[in-house]
Design a protein around this nucleic acid. Structure first.
Length: 486
RNA sequence: GGCGCCUUCGUCAAGCGGUUAAGACACCGCCCUUUCACGGCGGGUUCAUGGGUUCGAAUCCCAUAGGCGUCACCA
């Protein structure tokens, strides 16, 4: 590729940053970083006045930064081809719309939305393509005056050439062909003077010298409209790459009922940006070797549009969890503890500032459970273990263990021995289990289980000696006595 | 309904006319651990169906089926 790589991510700020959008942004960013002079542009497509919001824009920008996807040009950072908010480019669109009008390539349409809707309905009923039938294509001056007198506000429609084959190149799907008769005359400027997506996107991508348009597959059917506009405006058509959609477990488009869909939600759940980037890259792209774990720098090196899959991919939370766990292994225990604190506060386990000693103790607890965590918020599944001394044994199996005839003797002896431990740490507590086993001549299970249950209320969990160490002598006795007063 | 895209283990996927059809996640089993998790080892009727082309097809072609997208004065 001799030309400069200029790619863009152009979200519409109409909601929290979606995980699918993050993947589109990532692929663009990766391509820009792969080439020496590549540029990644962030443009905000805010022409939907009803749904766009500043909050959404901030959310998108924050999420991009959090993921490590920085942009070379665009909102906030500027650049040679700004402005980068579409609403600040209205005069530009207006100029090109006028040009098309002057050249007869576009015309005013006075049809109302109701009329258009009725027309579409009728066409669909006849199994025909629901495209605009060209009612206003050739209005006389009188007709126009009449409509104006009615107070109708016109839209501007593009006069799509008929009987033409519209072609373009798609890096993922190859050479694409569409019949222009299936496109119809479409609106390029709304009655309020604001351009429609298909129009604005073409002008912006052309003026911003975008070389490759990488976006989600849902835009594939829009592309013929854009291509005819590129032609009409005399712009060069960029290379497209339509990447497949990300689906939920039931194979429908990712939505709220599939769980978390926004980058922010994953962030809040305690997923790491490196893991999300790694996971997203592997969703639709495959490396040439068997590597699974990629740092973002490794991705830049290995990534190639040649190996982007055509088929949609199901979002597999299990794999994300595994990947995130891999990245969490590299974190310090202090860091993991810090990640957990907001969740602990939110659930009422903590109420704010911790003393240095309390913090140190919590870190020791984290050390014991960290291998069990796939993401930060999972800490909560273990919070009772540490914070809640009010042990309640609910499980029937656990009750049975406590009802065993050897249980009281085990507990009693263990308490005696624990009471006399000088160095109260796991290394010195661990031998006690063995001693109890020996002295009472019972199996290990008969020792560990009743103790685990009286101390934690559960049959399973992290290393018991470690838990005892972290809880400290008093709390351990308190818990045991509550469950099994002797 | 029209148009379009897609179809290899449950999931992500490698594969580019000749392979025992990789690998990863998940799952199952075993080991480690007197628990669980981590880790290690091992396991599994996967090329949607039907026709071609070819000595030979997961790979090429055509149908069919299914999934998805899109047909807005939303992006």
């Amino acid at each position: 590729m001799s030309e400069q790589i200029r790619v863009r991510f152009a979200p519409s700020p109409t909601g929290p940053f979606h995980i699918g959008g993050a993947r589109s942004a990532l692929f663009n960013w990766l391509l820009a970083r792969k080439y020496p002079n590549g540029k990644f542009v962030l443009r905000i497509e805010d022409t939907d006045r009803v749904r766009s919001s500043k909050e959404s824009e901030e959310n998108i920008k924050e999420s991009l930064k959090w993921l490590g996807l920085d942009w070379d040009e665009g909102v906030d950072v500027g650049g040679d081809y700004g402005p980068y908010h579409q609403m600040e480019r209205l005069d530009i669109y207006k100029k090109y719309a006028q040009q098309l009008l002057d050249e007869g390539k576009a015309y005013y349409c006075y049809c109302t939305e109701e009329e258009i809707a009725a027309e579409r309905k009728a066409l669909m009923a006849e199994n025909k393509m629901p495209i605009y039938q060209g009612h206003c294509r050739h209005l006389t001056a009188e007709q126009i005056e009449a409509y104006k007198a009615e107070g109708r506000k016109p839209t501007i429609r593009f006069r799509t050439p008929e009987n033409k084959t519209v072609e373009f190149e798609d890096m993922v799907r190859g050479h694409m062909q569409f019949d222009s008769n299936g496109v119809g005359d479409f609106v390029i400027v709304k009655a309020d003077g604001i351009p429609v997506y298909n129009f604005a996107v073409v002008i912006d991508d052309a003026l911003m010298k975008i070389s490759h348009v990488i976006r989600a597959e849902e835009h594939l059917s829009n592309t013929p409209r854009q291509v005819v506009l590129y032609d009409a405006l005399g712009f060069n058509v960029p290379t497209f790459a339509h990447i497949s959609l990300i689906l939920g477990k039931d194979h429908s488009k990712m939505s709220k009922r599939h769980g978390a869909t926004s980058v922010e939600q994953y962030k809040n759940l305690g997923y790491l940006p490196e893991a999300i980037v790694n996971f997203l890259a592997l969703l639709g792209w495959a490396p040439q070797n068997e590597q699974e774990i990629f740092s973002i720098d490794e991705l830049v090196k290995a990534f190639s549009m040649d190996h982007v899959a055509k088929n949609p991919a199901v979002f597999d939370i299990d794999k994300l969890n595994w990947l995130n766990a891999q990245y969490m292994k590299k974190l310090s225990t202090e860091k993991i503890t810090m990640m957990a604190i907001p969740h602990l506060v939110a659930k009422g386990y903590l109420n704010g500032a911790l003393s240095t000693a309390e913090m140190a103790q919590l870190v020791r607890f984290t050390e014991i459970i960290r291998d069990h965590l796939s993401y930060g918020a999972q800490f909560l599944e273990f919070a009772d273990l540490y914070f809640n001394d009010d042990i309640v044994v609910k499980d029937d199996e656990a009750q049975k263990v406590l009802a065993d005839e050897t249980a009281p003797a085990v507990i009693k002896l263990f308490k005696e021995k624990l009471d006399s431990v000088e160095d109260f740490d796991a290394a010195h507590i661990q031998p006690i289990f063995k001693q109890v086993t020996k002295e009472l001549k019972v199996g290990g299970k008969k020792v560990y289980m009743p103790l685990r249950i009286t101390i934690t209320g559960q049959m399973h969990g992290p290393d018991l000696a470690g838990i005892i160490e972290v809880l400290g002598r008093d709390r351990v006795f308190k818990r045991i006595d509550k469950v099994m007063p002797l």
